[in-house]
């Protein structure tokens, strides 16, 4: 049985920096965590062993860099979870999940097309949706002033801070503890 607490435990096991259990009803994910880039493959292996599948890879541009969100879903007990990796704006490199989830190849190629994030270990990192002769920088947001901070976007709303260096990513206002415990019960 995979419960939300168990998933949280997996996040802690691979050295997550931030971990949260948002309300599934409003956020659409039941467990979320920021993990170091080098730990994402370990996390994926653990999740794969727990009968999880990779739904998509979504890249978010923010002031702090590229936040790469991997959405996983379980085949045995439904409940989406988000594993996040923060890559720097300059030379973003993240290990590829291709060895665990072969379906990740295309998601990573798509992210490479549009955000220039390089996925180490992807066997075929050629343009997927953009034309092969597309030159120039990836089609990012034009002005750096457009970018919002992750704290403003509320991505890590109500997260438990495990690595103090990531405290700035969490919005200042603390989430009401009652809501968190409700989500756990639900």
């Amino acid at each position: 049985m995979t419960s939300i607490d168990h998933l949280e435990q997996i996040f802690r096991q691979v050295g997550a920096r931030l971990v949260s259990k948002p309300d599934f009803k409003t956020r659409g994910i039941c467990c979320s965590g920021l993990v170091p880039a080098k730990a994402i493959v370990d996390l994926a292996k653990l999740l794969a062993a727990e009968d999880h599948t990779l739904l998509d890879v979504s890249v978010l541009e923010a002031k702090e860099g590229f936040l790469i969100t991997y959405h996983f879903d379980s085949f045995s007990e439904p409940g989406r979870l988000a594993a996040r990796v923060l890559a720097p704006r300059e030379n973003p490199v993240v290990p590829s999940l291709h060895s665990v989830f072969q379906g990740a190849e295309w998601h990573e190629r798509e992210s490479h097309d549009f955000y220039g994030v390089r996925f180490d270990g992807n066997p075929n990192l050629v343009p997927l949706l953009l034309p092969e002769d597309f030159s120039g920088p990836p089609p990012l947001r034009k002005a750096p002033g457009d970018l919002a901070g992750l704290a403003d976007l509320g991505v890590f709303d109500g997260s438990e801070i495990l690595d103090p260096s990531c405290a700035s990513l969490v919005p200042a206002r603390p989430a009401p503890p009652a809501a968190v415990s409700e989500a756990r019960d639900a």
Partner: peptide, 21 residues
């Protein structure tokens, strides 16, 4: 402002929208 993920069952499988505002 905020982030959410909403999925429905389409004819071909799970249709998901990951929305950040």
């Amino acid at each position: 402002a905020g982030e959410t993920y909403f999925a429905v069952e389409g004819a071909r499988g799970q249709v998901g929208v990951h929305l950040v505002s």
